[in-house]
Amino acid sequence: MAEVIFYLLDEEQNDAQPAPLALACRLAAQAYRSKQACLVLCEDKQQAEAVDELLWQLPVDAFVPHNLTGEGPPKGTPVEIAWQGSSRSNKPVLINLASQLPEGHQRFKRIFDFVPADDQQKQQARERYKQYRGAGHQLDTRPANSIEEN
C-alpha cells in the first residue's frame, strides 16, 4: 500500500509553467535532496521532455541529476522521467502527471498526484482518486502551496 498525496492546484500556471509540471519538478528536487529515488510519470513523451527541460533549467544551486527513459547510465539516476508506455525502473516514489492511474501503482511506497485547476483535468484527477482508494492506498490531500520552494 502506498501513501498517496494529492496536491490541489488553484492556478493553471506556476512560474509561467503549467502548474503540475512546475510542482512535479519541486517534488522531484525534494525527493533528490532527501535521497529518495523517484519516477516522474508523464502523459506522453512531449510532456516528459518539458519536465526534463524544466529540471535542467533549475537554478544551479537546485541542480537535480535526472534522465529521460531511454538515456542515462545503466544504473539509472535519482530522478527518471518516463511517459505512459515507456519502460521504467524501480523507484520507491512516483510523481504522477499522467491522466490515467499508473500501471503497477501497487509497488510504490509513496505517490504524489495533482488535482489541476483545469476542469477536464480535475475530473480525471477525481477519477484517479477513486481508483487509488479502490486499490486500498492511503490517501491524503494537501494545498499546492504546502510544497516548499526550491
Binding site: W56, F63, P65, H66, N67, E71, G72, P73, T77
Partner: peptide
C-alpha cells in the same frame, strides 16, 4: 555528454 545532466557532479560543471 549526458553526464552533465545525469550525474551529481554535473552540478560542479554547470556552476
Amino acid at each position: 555528454d549526458n553526464r552533465l545532466v545525469t550525474r551529481d557532479y554535473g552540478k560542479t560543471f554547470i556552476s
